[in-house]
């Protein structure tokens, strides 16, 4: 769901060890990279390495049918053109219903396909959902090995709150990191004198830096990135001057990493 805000369709690359997704948004401003290791699943089996091209907008709509306590099983057969999602029916709300969303065609660029909704109080205690598969162009990323000048680690809830609040005030934000201070500010929101008075490091913020960094970013994207905050208690902001920001959420068996090109020029 976090990814679908940024990219409309992408390949889930599946192998024996993990599921990975990497996709750039249409404007080439942001990129999202996700990995979930096999141990992160209750059960996991991949007999053959294969890409699952998925329309994330459709997938998100299908996922909204699940409740948090539902266990979701994803299945794709060899040569199949659908991804099958099965929700167990622990939830009383869904248990009497059978939902079948079915559509065909491998072209993920087509508009949201028609679907059929079948409901019956007599059908089994499972929800079956199918979404069509397509192939997307993979992205090579030799770049993520980049060593960054700064790394700021902070509670993800704090980051979410900051970017959400600042997005009410403006369209972009400046992130400055010096030895003892990380300042995330709407440009010209305060006088520099006020800034000096308010400089402090909130609890749970760790700054690692080799060099002072000052970059400006679109808040719209940062707000979208921050929607992954529920996946991890901490978020890392990795920055060097004049290179894309890396916003990294690591969880036990994987990660979601978002890259954002900075604003450039004067």
């Amino acid at each position: 769901k976090s990814c679908s805000i940024l990219v409309t369709d992408a390949n889930f690359e599946c192998n024996e060890e993990n599921i990975m997704l990497q996709a750039m948004d249409n404007s080439h401003i942001a990129l999202v990279s996700v990995e979930i290791g096999a141990p992160g699943f209750t059960s996991y089996r991949c007999d053959r390495t294969m890409p699952l091209g998925v329309d994330l907008t459709s997938l998100t709509k299908v996922l909204r049918c699940a409740k948090d306590e539902n266990i979701c099983t994803l299945k794709a057969a060899d040569e199949a053109d659908v991804l099958n999602l099965v929700y167990d029916a622990k939830s009383a709300f869904f248990s009497p219903f059978f939902f079948a969303f079915m559509w065909h065609g491998r072209d993920a660029s087509s508009p949201f396909p028609p679907f059929f909704l079948l409901c019956s109080a007599l059908l089994p205690l499972f929800i079956h959902l199918n979404i069509s598969l397509s192939s997307q162009t993979p992205i090579t990323s030799s770049w993520p090995e980049t060593k960054y000048d700064t790394r700021v680690t902070l509670p993800s809830a704090e980051f979410t709150r900051i970017v959400r609040d600042l997005s009410q005030l403006g369209e972009h934000v400046r992130i400055e990191v010096s030895k003892e201070v990380v300042r995330i500010s709407k440009l010209k929101a305060k006088s520099s004198a006020e800034d000096e008075d308010n400089d402090s490091i909130p609890t749970g913020v760790v700054i690692e830096m080799n060099q002072h960094v000052s970059l400006t970013f679109s808040l719209k994207y940062l707000v979208n990135f921050s929607k992954s905050g529920s996946l991890s208690g901490e978020v890392q902001l990795l920055m060097s001057n004049d290179v894309p920001l890396l916003v990294a959420y690591d969880f036990t068996q994987g990660y979601i990493r978002c890259y954002l090109a900075p604003k450039i020029g004067d």
Binding site: H28, I29, I139, T216, P244, G265, D266
Partner: peptide, 14 residues
């Protein structure tokens, strides 16, 4: 004023 940069050059489509 600043302009929005792009990721081209950092990531390439295969």
């Amino acid at each position: 004023s600043k302009q929005q940069g792009r990721l081209d050059g950092f990531f390439t489509m295969k």
